[in-house]
């Protein structure tokens, strides 16, 4: 279950989002400042904001500032947007738009939310694994990464691929991936570290969002994967180091490995 932070002053809009959001949880903000606070305090998977939430303010400029401050949190804009503002929203970095007239179509709203929640870590991992892991293995990692905000566990992962847990374990071995449990552990750590890159986030809030009972449990997960504590890893470089360590644990299936030209 992912967390969505939403700034929608209109009651009807709130109802529409509430209908489309499940299984994800929504936290409501009353103003842009409140939205910042919500995103800082808890690692939200996506934010949703009404472009006209505050009258006589340039909503697009608010979007731009949000994206500058939280570049890893996708922002979906909601509302009746004219052509000029649609153009400006693209430049400001909005991840997607839900037009006011589509807002009560819960299928459409849900699709937009799912696609923004699924973005982020999954494509990044896919690109890094591409040279060493085949399509089937990457599909598993992609699916698992997309469902980390939903707190996915090994049995659910196996079920999603129509396999038993033991079959999934054998497949992971064949595809050159860590065991399913270890894979999910790694993905939680990577997700957590990525969330920690944004300002104001605490280890406790990230741990809770990943399904851990306490900050200590997340720290133990880091120790078991990368080694050390989370604090030194709270930078782009630290995150890259963690990603490299994960890739090093994936021997790959050899399908894409090039023959070395050693003669």
């Amino acid at each position: 279950m992912a967390l969505i932070a939403a700034l929608l002053p209109d009651r009807v809009d709130r109802e529409a989002l509430r209908a489309a959001a499940p299984p994800h949880e929504v936290v409501w903000a009353e103003s842009w400042r409140d939205l910042y606070r919500a995103v800082r305090r808890r690692p939200v998977a996506t934010a949703v904001a009404d472009l006209h939430a505050e009258s006589r303010k340039d909503g697009v400029l608010r979007v731009y500032r949000f994206v500058q401050r939280f570049p890893l949190t996708p922002l979906v804009v909601w509302g009746d947007v004219d052509g000029r503002d649609l153009f400006r929203l693209g430049k400001a970095g909005a991840r997607d738009v839900i037009m006011a007239r589509d807002a009560d179509d819960r299928f459409l709203v849900s699709e937009v939310l799912e696609s923004t929640i699924a973005g982020g870590l999954a494509p990044l991992l896919d690109a890094r694994l591409r040279p060493i892991v085949g399509e089937e293995g990457r599909e598993l990692v992609r699916y698992a990464a997309e469902h980390i905000p939903d707190q996915i566990q090994v049995p659910a992962l196996a079920a999603a691929f129509d396999m038993s847990v033991s079959t999934l374990e054998r497949r992971c071995l064949k595809w050159g991936l860590p065991t399913p449990g270890r894979l999910l552990l790694w993905l939680r750590v990577l997700y957590g570290l990525r969330w920690l890159l944004e300002p104001g986030r605490s280890v406790e809030s990230v741990s809770y969002q990943l399904g851990y009972s306490s900050g200590a449990a997340f720290r133990r997960a880091i120790k078991a994967t990368i080694g050390g504590r989370p604090t030194p890893l709270r930078s782009e470089r630290g995150f890259d180091r963690a990603l490299d360590a994960f890739i090093a644990e994936c021997p790959g299936d050899g399908v894409y490995q090039q023959l070395s030209a050693t003669g």
């Binding site: 697009v60 400029l61 731009y64 400006r88 693209g90 430049k91 400001a92 970095g93």
Partner: peptide, 9 residues
């Protein structure tokens, strides 16, 4: 308009 000078993505 502060958005106008931004590069198009």
């Amino acid at each position: 308009d502060r958005i106008a000078p931004l590069e198009a993505p």
